[in-house]
Amino acid sequence: MGCGNVFFTLLITFSVALITYNIIISSNAPLKQELPGPSRSSSSITVDPIIKMPVDKSRGGSGSKRLFHTAVTASDSVYNTWQCRVMYYWFKKMKETPNSDMGGFTRILHSGKADKHMNEIPTFVAQPLPSGMDQGYIVLNRPWAFVQWLQQADIKEDYILMSEPDHIIVKPIPNLSRDGLGAAFPFFYIEPKKYESVLRKYFPEEKGPITDIDPIGNSPVIVGKESLKKIAPTWMNVSLAMKKDPETDKAFGWVLEMYAYAVSSALHGVGNILFKDFMIQV
């Protein structure tokens, strides 16, 4: 028993040390805007048909900042509000650092009413879906909230970063989108090919191969504002249609709204550059 306890203690100590090391390394590593590829000199851009990853590394342009607006949808729950306050704190710290293309910030509050944190966090109040329409899946309010915000708010920046309350920004974020493509994090559990028969209800074959649907959700995604204005209403309608369909609802469960965004982006021809170092999941 004594040897077992010593071994268990050593195992726990080693695991904690390894996790701590990985966190330190990841927080110090720069979020690279350079993209993989054999050449920096080519002026053309090549896109992988599956992951939409450009192989040209040059940034192009005059080097001027392309600011993006960070938008976070939230409910009025105590927990969600606390997450937003923490996230906004780190947003402000990272915004002013070098290599940041971070512009304004908005909490899109889809409770339909203001709260006491309006003066602390820049907030747009969106109306929730009509009672019962979300069928207990509160995330369905997210695309509807974005539709309202994009239609009614005065957004200065030309790009939008869609984020979530539980995201903590640990380094300055450059604008990773380019050439009409969004920039997104690839989720291993978003598998369009696996669920092709289900997704063809919303992305018919004449729209293109199933690989046109990227393995993403709506967050984190940096995308052009005008592109998102086109995507958002479709995202809302596809989300509602998926939730109403028993087969789709059963297949996708809690990630249904993520699939809906991926489908909607593909329907509008907006591909995404996939950055595995965009986010760390813990």
Rank of each mutant, 00 (worst) to 15 (best):
F187E: 13
Y202S: 12
I222C: 01
I222G: 04
G182Y: 01
P209C: 03
F203V: 10
I222H: 08
E226R: 10
P192L: 01
P209N: 05
D214H: 06
K243V: 04
A232R: 00
G269Q: 11
M236I: 00
L199M: 14
G224R: 00
G217W: 00
E164L: 00
K244F: 04
S163T: 03
N175D: 01
M236H: 03
K201R: 15
L181D: 02
K194M: 09
E206P: 14
V221Y: 00
R200N: 10
F185E: 02
A232I: 01
K207R: 14
P192S: 02
D158W: 02
D249T: 11
L199Q: 09
I160E: 00
A260I: 07
G224P: 08
T234F: 00
I169M: 14
K156H: 00
K193Y: 03
V263S: 11
F203T: 08
P246A: 10
S227I: 12
I155T: 13
I169L: 15
F187K: 15
D158C: 04
N237G: 04
P220Y: 03
W149F: 15
G217I: 01
A232G: 00
I155L: 10
E205I: 09
A184I: 09
E191F: 03
P186E: 07
Y261L: 12
A241L: 12
Y159S: 11
A184E: 09
R200E: 09
W149N: 00
G253Q: 13
Y202P: 12
L181V: 05
Q152H: 10
P233G: 02
L199D: 07
S265G: 10
F203L: 08
G217Y: 05
V170K: 06
E247Y: 08
S197G: 09
V238M: 02
S197P: 11
E196N: 07
E164I: 01
I169S: 04
V198S: 10
I155P: 13
P204S: 02
A232K: 06
Y189D: 15
M236E: 14
L176F: 09
I190D: 05
K194Q: 12
E164Y: 07
K230E: 09
E226D: 14
G224T: 03
P246K: 14
S265Q: 03
N175S: 01
P220A: 09
W149E: 01
L150I: 06
I168V: 15
V147E: 10
M236F: 08
Y259T: 03
K171N: 13
D179F: 00
W254C: 07
E205V: 13
G217C: 05
K171A: 15
A184R: 08
V238R: 04
A183I: 05
A241D: 15
D179M: 04
P233T: 04
Y189H: 15
I231F: 04
E206M: 08
K229V: 05
V238Q: 06
I190G: 03
L161V: 09
